Amino acid sequence: MPKINISIKIFSVIIKYIYGGIISLEKLENSTIFDIVNISNELELGELVEYLKTYIVNNHAMLLVKNLEIIRDFYNDIIVKHPNTIFESENFHSLPEGALISILKQDDLQLDEGKIWEYVIKWGKGEKF
């Protein structure tokens, strides 16, 4: 098993769970809870990981939505600035229709419109590049 770097705070929470079956998350910061999930996963504490996932979904759904929005915006920015990364990908032909439509709806896609249509036609035919 690889060496795992665990803070004393997280170690204390996990040890209390292992020996007492009790975990108290109410006073912990969100980032600490996410760290506990990651470390519990590395330690293969499946039951604890599942409990923590359920806790996060039930108690911090808006945090998850916000993080997903940040990730989506990050990738949309990459796609807009470097569309060839997607359009010239070996797997472009297998891109789901909804994903392609989402990309094409980007107003500031930095690619010639004629070239975009060529890619869309090749996608429609299922052709590889």
Results as ranks from 00 to 15, higher is better:
112 D>K: 05
15 I>F: 02
49 V>D: 14
15 I>A: 12
73 D>H: 13
62 M>F: 14
80 V>R: 15
35 D>G: 05
7 S>P: 09
38 N>G: 08
35 D>Y: 07
25 L>V: 11
117 W>Q: 13
78 I>F: 00
119 Y>L: 09
13 V>L: 08
1 M>P: 14
105 K>A: 02
9 K>C: 12
49 V>N: 05
33 I>A: 12
93 H>A: 06
27 K>L: 13
55 Y>D: 05
71 I>G: 01
85 T>A: 15
47 E>L: 09
73 D>Y: 04
18 I>F: 06
57 V>S: 04
80 V>H: 00
37 V>F: 10
42 E>C: 03
74 F>K: 06
95 L>K: 07
105 K>H: 13
89 S>W: 07
107 D>R: 09
30 N>W: 06
6 I>M: 10
110 Q>R: 08
81 K>F: 01
37 V>Q: 06
22 I>M: 15
99 A>F: 10
36 I>P: 04
124 G>W: 01
6 I>K: 08
43 L>F: 13
61 A>L: 14
20 G>F: 04
87 F>R: 07
19 Y>L: 13
115 K>Y: 03
125 K>C: 09
122 K>V: 03
59 N>G: 07
18 I>Y: 02
29 E>K: 14
51 Y>D: 11
90 E>I: 12
73 D>S: 11
122 K>N: 14
74 F>D: 12
94 S>I: 06
104 L>Q: 08
123 W>G: 00
100 L>H: 03
68 L>Q: 08
59 N>E: 01
1 M>L: 12
12 S>V: 01
65 V>H: 13
96 P>F: 04
22 I>H: 14
46 G>A: 05
60 H>C: 14
20 G>M: 11
75 Y>D: 02
48 L>D: 03
28 L>A: 10
79 I>Y: 03
14 I>F: 00
67 N>A: 14
65 V>G: 10
71 I>S: 04
78 I>E: 05
45 L>R: 01
41 N>P: 00
110 Q>A: 10
60 H>W: 15
33 I>C: 03
22 I>Y: 07
51 Y>F: 12
127 E>G: 00
69 E>R: 03
108 D>C: 07
75 Y>K: 08
75 Y>P: 11
128 K>C: 09
101 I>P: 00
121 I>G: 00
102 S>I: 01
82 H>E: 15
73 D>F: 01
76 N>A: 09
89 S>V: 07
6 I>T: 08
74 F>Y: 12
87 F>E: 04
125 K>I: 03
82 H>K: 03
87 F>G: 14
104 L>W: 03
76 N>C: 07
94 S>P: 00
68 L>A: 10
43 L>R: 11
5 N>A: 08
24 S>M: 11
93 H>V: 01
87 F>Y: 08
17 Y>L: 12
19 Y>Q: 11
114 G>E: 11
78 I>P: 00
3 K>L: 15
127 E>Y: 08
84 N>E: 12
80 V>T: 06
90 E>M: 13
49 V>L: 11
38 N>K: 04
28 L>V: 04
71 I>F: 06
53 K>E: 09
50 E>L: 07
12 S>E: 14
74 F>A: 03
105 K>I: 03
67 N>I: 01
126 G>E: 04
5 N>T: 00
56 I>R: 00
108 D>L: 10
68 L>M: 11
100 L>V: 03
27 K>F: 05
30 N>R: 12
35 D>I: 00
24 S>Y: 06
97 E>C: 07
